[in-house]
Design a protein around this nucleic acid. Structure first.
Lengths: 355, 355
DNA sequence: ACAAATAGTGTGTGCGCACAAACAGTAACC
DNA sequence: GGTTACTGTTTGTGCGCACACACTATTTGT
């Protein structure tokens, strides 16, 4: 086909102007007369010009400074994966003139988050990607960054009140629906199912509410409300004897309990409990490929894991930022990552390095 | 860290030679004295030099001609997806000086395959990617391409007798194991399960044998052979009344039949049958997100689909070829794509365009 | 009327690299 | 001692683009 590559020079020739003029049209800089601008723009469209990004990265000596603000991952494989994803994208995109620096905060210490976010703000980078774990404390920074015109991309935790350049992560509602489907597949007979929130302040965690909502709606929308009875519990692990007591009571009061849906990665806590109590009839579904969950998945105590793909979140966050900054592409406001259903037999494909 | 980018010029300076000499070391061209060569190589390692591929693509005006030989996809969404994947990779990599042309053959007509493969051979491209559907007819071409030193990458169908640059696709054995796991999840009680091969010449389709092997081994390795009884059948749709008769007989003879594993995308044929016979108790698992399967998945007649990800296969095939040709990277001999478990609630993430 | 400001456009250099042509140094041969 | 035949190395040009600078033509101010 039309394999001829269109260059700025070609456009300039056809328009009867110099390359400098075309450049000014392309980048909206300097002064151009209206008619020339229109003419050049028309020809750019006609000839289907696409900038050569390699040459652009070469020519403009600009280095974009991008910072990533993520929870400290020394003891947390979930955030470790996210950082791995960022680093993978960094390796791929390094040659286009980007410089990524990572800032870490303690996910259990809001002060460290604020401190690092302030540091970042002071350094005025070209772009920011972050996992905004602390809802209220994040908003003021979103404000600042907006006025400073620093684009920011959030991942893992969706905050819709303030519009970032893009959100990367899972569709919580849909993942609740998915969990519902999985339970209805593994539990063909009528039974009770428990929704368990562990170690979370539900009031401040809208994504967990969405998961629960999706889960409940799966049953109601599919006319399964008569077949399955849903229960709900909030548990804290810090008082483990209370944790056990609460679980004991649920089990005792619901002899037909056949499934437990844990809305976070803390499913292994329930798995440990079930193992201790020698309960084998209850199906367990939760999130994330952290070692303890993998352990119980392999043992058959967890039936399915749903992968939130932290690696992909990190990877796409940086990718989108570079798309925006370097390639001037439009980036979608929301990128929902696939909902991966994980069992022992396919887990390897989701935890392996894969360069 | 060491954010300074190392250029050829830097190496030349440190080695006390010109950039041209470093260039000849890097590309093994021209004559170089042994000691200079060693010195330069040492410094390249010391300074951790990484070529700037953007600049390289610019500087070398070379355009790599890559051809893709795929089944005609006008009426086949599976191969259409594969081509979409190739085109997506093409868009991403165009700027690095590659030119991709597509050759199509009729998957039901070996002659067209041979014809196109010959055309490709005559045109002596820089690289070939193909889905080698016809085992015997492909081997001679592998031979030719090897002597012509044209690298080729195969996808979808693994042929291990002749070593291509890389294979992209699914691990058939592992996907059989996965199917086994899924059946044991959805069928908690002892029952019979049928393995169905549809429209295939099993003797010439080693990947189907591997799937069956994996499936059977799931049950034997997990001590489930007593719980589940496996049956096996080969069906042809061209004689549909026979097809029905065979199925009727299986159903009648095995009242405890609770599951059917179809080793290809033809699960919708069984689904149609089950729907006609108003059989709802039998779980069905098969491959690929083709419209008819999606239809029955949404209806609840198919329990799970396993995605062979044709789009990803095409995408990675081209990507690997470019990694090899342009970036001179080592490409893995085998890239197994993830085994995606698909239900109605997560299927959208696997069929949507996603740019 | 003449300088100064402004609008609009062209030219040149460099980014990191590939590649070819030019060049220097050495040994061999008559 | 000069030619030839190499071997090894440097230099220069161009890839497509960004960007600073130079330049001209027109307008504005006084």
């Amino acid at each position: 086909m039309n394999s001829k590559i269109v260059r700025i020079k070609d456009i300039a020739e056809k328009a009867g102007v110099s390359t400098g003029t075309v450049d000014r049209v392309l980048h909206d800089r300097g002064r151009i007369s209206q008619d020339v601008k229109e003419k050049v723009l028309r020809i750019i469209k006609e000839m289907n010009y696409e900038p050569n990004y390699s040459a652009r990265a070469l020519g403009s000596n600009k280095i974009y400074r991008i910072v990533a603000l993520v929870p400290n991952h020394t003891n947390d494989s979930y955030w470790y994966e996210a950082v791995m994803g960022i680093e993978k994208a960094e390796r791929e995109l390094k040659q286009f003139g980007i410089n990524v620096s990572r800032y870490k905060f303690d996910p259990h210490n809001i002060a460290t988050f604020i401190e690092k976010a302030q540091e970042i703000t002071d350094s005025a980078p070209d772009g920011i990607i972050l996992a905004p774990l602390f809802y209220k404390e994040t908003l003021p920074f979103f404000d600042k960054w907006s006025t400073m015109k620093i684009p920011f991309i959030i991942f893992n935790t969706q905050i819709s009140e303030y519009s970032p350049l893009s959100y990367i992560g899972q569709d919580s509602y849909q993942s609740g629906l998915l969990a519902g489907r999985l339970f209805s597949q593994v539990n063909p007979d009528p039974c009770s199912i428990l929704i368990a929130h562990i170690d979370e302040d539900i009031g401040n965690a809208s994504h967990l509410i969405k998961k629960e909502q999706g889960f409940r709606n799966y049953f109601s929308h599919n006319n399964l409300s008569d077949k399955y009875t849903l229960h709900r519990i909030e548990l804290q692990r810090k008082n483990y004897s209370l944790f056990q007591k609460q679980m004991d009571s649920v089990i005792d009061n619901n002899p037909d309990l056949q499934g437990i849906y844990v809305t976070t990665s803390k499913g292994y806590a329930i798995a440990t409990y079930l193992e201790q109590r020698h309960i084998k009839s209850i199906k367990l579904i939760c999130y994330d490929l952290v070692p303890k969950n993998i352990h119980f998945l392999n043992k058959g105590i967890i039936s399915f894991l749903i992968n939130q793909n932290p690696r992909g979140q990190g990877y796409w966050s940086l990718h989108h930022m570079v798309d925006y900054l370097v390639f001037k592409k439009k980036v979608p406001l929301i990128k929902y990552l696939p909902l991966d259903v994980i069992v022992k037999e396919n887990i390897n494909y989701f935890i392996h390095e894969d360069n």
